[in-house]
């Protein structure tokens, strides 16, 4: 019995140790990082965080990421809602194949699309804009949103729709007033996953931006490849990208296991 409790504890330690190390480094000065090996900060400093919040080339990365991620979440959820409803309630010509085709885009490697995307978005004059990254991320987030929402909607009994129509509701009014409140938690989970996958994606975001819309992840890799690394600032930037995820986990903690168990992530 003791051994049994030991395994998850050991695993969690393994998970948290690298994260602890990053947090630890973010509170150290560069001198301390490079000269002495310490398990916790000897001279606790907030200098690294101050650099990020005062240097426009750093904090603009967070703003850019936030902008295109928000646009993407809004597009994904609003477009996916009626589509998921259609898939869960009606059968129509080619529905199964359309669904499968959508899913293949979720599963296709972004590397395949990186090359033509650059040309496509340049040719329509959207290169280096937030909207370009947001639309590009729809490639995998829209199918994902449709997939997750369809799962939640199939769990809502069809009688709800029928009763509402008998009561004289028009479809749009029924959808907004009755149906959406019923799947509110599903929409939350969907928005969460769209947020996450847009937030973690680097390849397309990096390919489609140069200066104005450059995401924080691309700014971080640039710093890594430069000589004379500022490890403390890099660690602080990393910690700041983990925070939104950690925050969102807290809100959806009761739904996480269920969301993953649908097998739709």
């Amino acid at each position: 019995m003791r051994l049994k409790n030991f395994i998850p504890v050991l695993y969690i330690v393994f998970l948290l140790l690298p994260i602890y190390w990053l947090v630890n480094m973010s509170f150290k000065t560069n001198d301390e990082i490079l000269s002495v090996f310490t398990l916790w900060p000897q001279n606790l400093t907030l200098h690294n965080y101050r650099v990020i919040f005062t240097d426009a080339s750093w904090y603009s990365g967070y703003i850019n990421s936030m902008i295109y991620v928000s646009i993407n979440v809004v597009i994904s959820v609003t477009f996916a809602l009626p589509a998921a409803y259609a898939f869960s309630r009606y059968s129509f010509v080619g529905d199964k194949h359309l669904f499968f085709w959508l899913l293949t885009n979720r599963m296709a490697p972004p590397a395949v699309f990186a090359l033509p995307f650059f040309q496509l978005y340049s040719s329509i004059g959207l290169f280096d804009t937030h909207i370009a990254v947001a639309v590009a991320h729809c490639l995998f987030n829209l199918p994902l949103a449709v997939w997750i929402l369809e799962g939640f909607m199939s769990g809502i009994p069809k009688e709800i729709d029928e009763t509402a129509f008998v009561d004289g509701y028009s479809w749009p009014r029924f959808f907004v007033k009755i149906f959406i409140p019923n799947i509110a938690s599903g929409i939350g989970v969907t928005a969460f996953f769209c947020f996450m996958f847009s937030w973690v994606e680097l390849l397309l975001a990096r390919t489609l931006t140069a200066v104005n819309a450059k995401p924080i992840s691309a700014i971080m890799t640039r710093t890594v490849s430069a000589s004379g690394l500022d490890w403390g600032v890099l660690a602080a930037a990393g910690v700041l990208t983990i925070l939104p995820g950690a925050l969102v986990i807290w809100f959806v903690r009761n739904h996480i296991a269920k969301g993953f168990a649908l097998g739709r992530v």
Binding site: W21, L22, L202, V224, G238, A246, V248, I249
Partner: peptide, 25 residues
């Protein structure tokens, strides 16, 4: 909840930061 939350954490870290964490580690 302790297990679930701490185990879900790595899944939600941006992939390049996962790389950075291990690069440093």
């Amino acid at each position: 909840p302790v297990c679930l939350i701490s185990m879900a954490l790595p899944l939600l870290i941006p992939w390049n930061v996962v790389g950075t964490i291990w690069q440093i580690f």
